[in-house]
Amino acid sequence: MTARLAIGFAWLAALAAVLFLAVPLLTVVAASVSPTPVFDLPLEGASLRWYARIGRLDGFWPALSLSLQIALLSTAIALVIGTLAAIAIVRGRLPGAETLATALVSPLMMPGLVLGIALLQYFRAVGFTATWSALLLAHLVVTLPYVARTMIAGLALFDFTLVEAARTLGCTYAGAILRVMVPALAPSFLTAGLFSFLASFDNYPVSIFLTDVRTKTLPIKMLQYIEEAPDPTLAALSTLILAATVILLVASDRLIGLHRMAGTSE
């Protein structure tokens, strides 16, 4: 009896959580087709005109382009150096491997804002003023922990005998890595890439201190729009970003399964 009551309560909490989490996302979608500029809800009629106005938002295209560049590049670099480090940690006879593993994921524990002001002062102190490069380097610190965490976990489960098997079957060492290890670790690469891309693309608290008047990432631009003139155009833009996220998630789910990501993502 007690047990069944507890299970009922658990399901109730889960239902509440799912609904509660869905509400803001549904709101944004609904507001994006609002016929009037004041987010009239519930809807009376629908309009797609706000979508047409996204492109006319002041400074939208440069911000989108900058965010994509930074997110893609920082993710790519983090994937390479993070994976190499993970191999050294899991596999190699590396002195202090455990310390390095802890250090690599430690920026995750750190408030983004603190990293932002630390880098701001640091770049000023060493006279580094190139905004674009500063953003890229900062986002490398943001993305590297995600890659390191996922790849260390993935490699720890990887059976390195597979590489040996490939070598005895005729592969060179490099060939064995490329033909066996990389494909076998594809789920980990995908998870790591997805997490770090999203972390970079959505980052606000680090970027805010490193942008200038002309170089702004999309999240910064969006917060500015919301504070200056909130209208359903922003809801339309948010809906598009959500849609892109959904597509990414569905694709990942098809490829590797979300429950596996839930397992590896702490």
């Binding site: 059976d159 005998t161 597979l162 040996e164 098997a165 005895t168 079957l169 066996v180 494909p183 076998a184």
Partner: peptide, 10 residues
């Protein structure tokens, strides 16, 4: 040709 203990199937 090596047959491994864990089989090491790809």
């Amino acid at each position: 040709g090596v047959v491994f203990q864990s089989y090491a199937l790809f």
